[in-house]
Design a protein around this nucleic acid. Structure first.
Length: 150
DNA sequence: GCCAACGTTGGC
DNA sequence: GCCAACGTTGGC
């Protein structure tokens, strides 16, 4: 089983929203490296942390499960969507998404500051300076280390 | 293929 | 709102 971390701005989509909806399509990934992780790495049953970014207290907030593997993101073909991509051809979609389902909230949010303070997480891409990946793999050891902080 | 300009991300 | 860092674009 693989482990991941996926960023979301809570103003747009938060752990509260996921808990309410139970499941959601992870639309709007428009970065090739992140897309490749979804396409080549994410498998049904994998677990992912939901991380709140661009907010007052950036933190890992919840746990999700990948419930559908990568498939074309329809928003790339929707002219009214902010994720519309005129360069993507319907017979050769450029962007993919996965579906995720709510597993549980963390007992309390584990903040970015707490993650930074933990030596075991030193190589987590999230903590690297200037990192802009919206979705990244987490090693089993890192997964456990983060859970130990909640 | 290089690289400057531009747009976006995301912590603070 | 600021700004550093990075990815993308497009002229050459």
């Amino acid at each position: 089983m693989g482990f991941w971390l996926m960023k979301s701005e809570p103003d747009v989509f938060s752990v509260d929203d996921l808990q309410r909806q139970r499941t959601t399509s992870w639309e709007g990934v428009r970065n090739y490296q992140a897309r490749n992780f979804m396409r080549d790495g994410m498998k049904r049953g994998d677990r992912a942390f939901l991380y709140h970014s661009s907010c007052a207290e950036p933190a890992v907030a919840g746990i999700m499960e990948i419930c559908r593997e990568a498939y074309p993101d329809p928003t790339q073909f929707d002219r009214r969507s902010k994720y519309y991509d005129a360069g993507s051809q319907p017979d050769q979609p450029r962007w993919l998404m996965v579906d995720v389902k709510f597993v549980r909230r963390l007992r309390r949010p584990v903040t970015l500051a707490e993650l930074r303070a933990d030596k075991r997480l030193a190589s987590l891409p999230l903590l690297r300076r200037g990192n802009r990946l919206s979705l990244m793999p987490v090693s089993p050891a890192e997964w456990e280390a983060i859970l130990a902080l909640e």
